[in-house]
Design a protein around this nucleic acid. Structure first.
Lengths: 286, 286
DNA sequence: CTTGTAGATTGTCATGAATCAATTTTTTCT
DNA sequence: AGAAAAAATTGATTCATGACAATCTACAAG
């Protein structure tokens, strides 16, 4: 286990992003660390990929924003002084699986930077019916649209697996936006892209049948959310139902169908896409 | 007819907003103009309300942004110099009913300020299926989310009745945002509220049955869009279908039902809400 | 005046998808 | 490890909704 920690120490010291993790292991560590301990690199890479979340969290404790590898790309345009200011006004918190990070309707006192894990952003409708807007993984902000509206959360966020976030004081955050034009512009881009993402979901949810909706969701989860978990989609059927706007029962039914047609592989609660072309075709056929 | 023009000249000179129009007529004009010409104020107000759009457009031609009563409230925080800069880089254009103002997918060269009329903002899905995101009336901006993303329009906009807009050069607009912090902040608020509006629509469109969806839409149209047209909702069934995400046939069916129950009154293609409480109840019952 | 066209209306019908209930599997907690 | 709880599965049933077709209406163009 210590080998992982060494790997992650190295990562945080070198400011590596999630994406360059595997590259880095292959290039820098294989000779010196891995072979010395008799580990096969490909196994280590796979293990690290699957357990990345756990070790990441270890490294994030007490991390200064200036050196944190998991800070938002938006923060890259900030000066050291600005980062230090944010660092002094942040709290790093770990949430366990299933815990609510943000509650819809609650007043917003902090901007939340999501630093590790996976969470679902959902709106609570009338009568137990939730709709998952999107899943969140590092690095992203939570509660974006409310920040410049009326400082109220318009969606809830719940940890799907153990996750950690940084609470950043709202006033400090706004102050930095006011004083750094590039940062302000980046933040506007973020809000804008968020809005555009919703447009695409509108289409899917209102005009496609359940086959198309589930196909779209599987593609989304495969490509955007579980892409750094070896594309192993680990979600409850209920969560998938809330993402696609269909009933849990229907999700199960269609997943079975897809498994029979060998479009996906279903091992316990872990889903893996086997035939992406077919999924895309199903999505396009509506 | 000239009485109207006088009224509107007065409005534009005094920088009156839409909302204070009726107040203004009662307070300032009734004695001097209306009685002198033998008109009954309440009739005039009603007529002006119903035909506001036509006369408004007359007044907007060649209007300098500095004195334009229909400019966005956002522009109120701009200095005269900034308004003058925008004025020099804008084009005022009138669109006839049914014409496309903005086409989804097209590159965005200008920010568009909607100055009179009513238009529908919709996303074009696969296979002729459109979804109306919202109706637009003065004063508002078009193409908001794309401005700070990749300068592409992510929705189409079509005039529902004769409408006029101002095309403002995108670079000039961004320059003003960069240099005026208050304006930048206002604009962020605008984008944010836009996003929040979509959240509420998600709920409605994914979790309510057609009765609830139509009720919601009628409430929206009554309160937010046709509120300055004497609450006379004038839309084609097709437009209402695209707004509610249901088929045209179903719209007609439910409207008939509502008419029978005297919740609405349907005179030709003009719908008026008679029993708002009932509509709200239908909406809540989902 | 008449003719054409687009939109509105109405009823019927097929079907997609949710609900319900009963059973099995998996996960979690002690 | 074993019990309890939660989640997943499955089939049967019901209902809501969209699609189609035929007719009607109103407005515009010739």
């Amino acid at each position: 286990m210590t080998i992982y920690k060494e790997v992650f120490q190295a990562i945080s010291l070198h400011h590596l992003t999630n994406l360059s993790l595997v590259d880095y292991i292959c290039r820098e560590l294989s000779a010196s660390l891995i072979y010395r301990k008799g580990l096969i690199p490909s196994d280590l890479i796979q293990d690290v990929q699957c357990n990345k979340n756990y070790f990441l969290m270890e490294c994030l404790k007490d991390m200064n924003c200036r050196f944190c590898s998991m800070k938002s790309p938006l923060f890259k345009v900030l000066s050291d002084a600005e980062l230090e200011l944010i660092n002094c006004n942040k709290r790093h918190v770990v949430f366990r699986k299933g815990e609510i990070i943000v509650k819809q309707g609650a007043p917003m006192s902090h901007v939340i930077s999501f630093t590790s894990g996976i969470a679902k952003v959902y709106i609570e409708g009338s009568g137990d019916r939730n709709l998952v807007l999107q899943f969140i993984k590092p690095t992203n902000f939570l509660g974006a649209p409310g920040i410049y509206a009326d400082q109220v959360h318009y969606s809830s966020v719940r940890a799907v697996e153990e996750s950690s976030v940084c609470f950043i004081d709202l006033h400090v955050f706004k102050q930095v936006i006011r004083e750094n034009k590039r940062f302000a512009e980046s933040f506007m881009e973020l809000i804008s892209w968020d809005g555009i993402f919703n447009y695409e979901r509108f289409n899917c949810l209102t005009h496609k049948n359940i086959h198309g909706r589930l196909a779209d969701s599987l593609i989304y989860l495969h490509e955007k959310i579980f892409n750094d978990r070896g594309n192993k989609i680990a979600l409850s059927r209920q969560d998938m139902a809330e993402l696609t706007g269909m009933s849990k029962d229907s999700v199960i039914r269609i997943l079975k169908e897809l498994e029979k047609e060998e479009v996906i592989e279903n091992d316990g609660s872990i889903i893996q896409v086997k035939n992406m072309d077919r999924l895309i075709k199903i999505s396009e056929l509506s």
